[in-house]
Design a protein around this nucleic acid. Structure first.
Lengths: 124, 124
DNA sequence: ATTTTTATTCTACATTTGTAGAGTATACTA
DNA sequence: TAGTATACTCTACAAATGTAGAATAAAAAT
């Protein structure tokens, strides 16, 4: 199961804060902020889906993510690659390098990141 | 406006075929195939959103995409980068290189693609 | 010409999603 | 301790989405 748009937005705040009480979550939103009950509903649904949990502090709850951002997006991006890029990372990479309007500087930065990752994989 | 899951799936078939009659679109689906009316509804909604159009051939329509796949996903991926990776391609690139479990071979292939893209940008 | 098939629209409905009021319980305050 | 604020749940409902039957129209087959 995956997150809806509204849940995803909320999850992003969760990921940013790592731990957060509901009232502080609401603060994260730009105006007009949603009603507390709206956020409460979303958090409940996200619990049901296994994406968040909380620690009870007195009478209120400190929420935290159960799913790491990188795992979530890894699954997400791999899904896109599987469904729309012929299950080929290279095909997606090609698209990404050519069609997302990266500057030369960004491309070079990305190449360095990949180089480092290759080294990291070889050495340890 | 963007596509829903079901519409996105259908769009993928449109992109693959480039031009296609509805009955052939239905053939693209794995069993159990959707009802023709289901596909018709989706196509109608996609027309309303400006994603597809058709050419009339006798009494039936040959549908074709109005939006290119690369443009669609460019927007999509850029949206993810903006919302969840701090609007930084490098941050997304880092994530992509490290956390999507690419093999060394895939990483090297990707580096080559990027190299070529850098050259292409420089020369013409 | 009548039946059958094909193509498309209209309408409908269940499910999911976005949003929040009303209610309840607990805690804080005057 | 009566009144107010806080935290959360339950219920509700509109909009979006997924799915398709019934109806209609045109074409093909007999």
């Amino acid at each position: 199961m995956s997150l809806t748009k509204a849940e995803e937005q909320l999850m992003e705040y969760l990921w940013q804060k790592e731990k957060v009480f509901m009232k502080d979550l609401i603060e994260c939103f730009p105006d007009p902020k949603p009603a507390t009950t709206t956020v409460a509903t979303l958090l409940k649904r996200m619990q049901d889906k296994g994406f968040v949990a909380y620690t009870l502090f007195g009478n209120s709850r400190e929420y935290y993510p159960l799913v790491e951002k990188k795992d979530y997006f890894s699954k997400h991006v791999n899904g896109i690659i599987k469904n729309f890029f012929n299950d080929s990372v290279a095909q997606f990479g090609s698209f990404f390098a050519r069609d997302t309007s990266m500057s030369t500087r960004e491309l070079e930065e990305l190449r360095n990141i990949i180089d480092e990752e290759i080294k990291r994989k070889q050495n340890g």
